[in-house]
């Protein structure tokens, strides 16, 4: 049995057609801008903007929703920790032992929580719309040595296979009366040993088979490799590249030269 799942969502739209290198750059610049910003309204706009971009690129609401389900616990943690443990000026909401919660710290918590969601979607925009080969080809085109790129491609390809193997092994051990869901935390941790060890033995076998398959298909021959479909920047890619660079530079100047987006001016002015 084998099956595949990865972050890539099959589709065809403007975002898919964009050169993967440009998308990678956009993700990096977007992340940089987000990380430099602590203003609630800016973060909210950024989150809505990236969601709008993803929807317009044909990513389904179901996909966005299932990612959100994973993000929500993280967001809640961030909100709680920031609100309770980061002292920020504002009206005091309550105080308990060493914990003080103010309107300021609550707002900052919410901002940071939304920011982590926006950040995740910005990076996922690249992963949702770039298949593995484009992903590795873009990294190789940006200077990553080919064997590394190949290693990355294989690793990505094998994540779903590993997940399938993990499931099969966990099935097999449970069928031998291994109890995974009950008992103390220590018991649960120990219960994973039979699965982990079997996983390692399996991975070693697979790795050996894989390395032989690579060599059998001429990998490592002392010949200059061809790149069958090299990446090519089209006019639209250059336009996007320019727009991304300009807006990032403008954004960073606004942030660091003029302090734009540091605090929550909209709420308190």
């Amino acid at each position: 049995m084998s099956f595949a799942y990865d972050l890539f969502q099959n589709g065809d739209s403007w975002l898919y057609r964009l050169d993967p290198r440009v998308k990678l750059l956009a993700s990096i610049c977007g992340s940089a801008l987000l990380l430099s910003c602590r203003n609630f309204w800016l973060v909210l706009v950024a989150l809505l903007l990236i969601l709008a971009i993803l929807l317009s690129a044909g990513i389904s609401r179901a996909t966005l929703g299932s990612t959100l389900r994973i993000l929500v616990p993280v967001m809640v943690m961030i909100v709680l920790f920031t609100a309770l443990f980061t002292p920020v000026e504002g009206t005091r909401l309550f105080q308990f032992w060493i914990v003080t919660c103010t309107t300021g710290s609550l707002l900052l918590g919410i901002t940071l929580g939304l920011r982590i969601a926006a950040l995740a979607y910005v990076i996922l925009a690249w992963l949702y719309t770039t298949d593995q080969s484009a992903l590795t080809r873009s990294l190789v085109a940006l200077g990553l040595p080919h064997p590394w790129g190949l290693t990355l491609a294989i690793a990505l390809r094998h994540i779903p296979l590993l997940a399938a193997t993990f499931r099969q092994i966990s099935d097999a051990q449970q069928a031998r009366a291994l109890e995974l869901s009950r008992g103390s935390l220590l018991h649960k941790a120990r219960a994973f040993i039979p699965i982990t060890v079997a996983m390692i033995i399996n991975s070693l076998r697979t790795a050996e088979a894989l390395s032989r398959a690579l060599v059998s298909r001429g990998f490592g021959a002392p010949i200059q490799r061809t790149i069958w479909r090299p990446l090519k920047m089209r006019a639209a890619d250059w336009v996007w590249l320019a727009m991304i660079l300009v807006s990032t530079v403008v954004g960073l100047i606004a942030r660091y030269a003029f302090g734009f987006g540091i605090d929550n001016w909209f709420l308190f002015s």
């Binding site: 092994i169 449970q174 069928a175 109890e179």
Partner: peptide
């Protein structure tokens, strides 16, 4: 009922022996 609780009743031999040897 959990799989572990059924294990004394239902034994499984899976296709790949390497999916359980540890």
């Amino acid at each position: 009922t959990s799989t572990a609780a059924l294990a004394h009743l239902v034994g499984f031999v899976f296709q790949n022996p390497d999916h359980q040897i540890f």
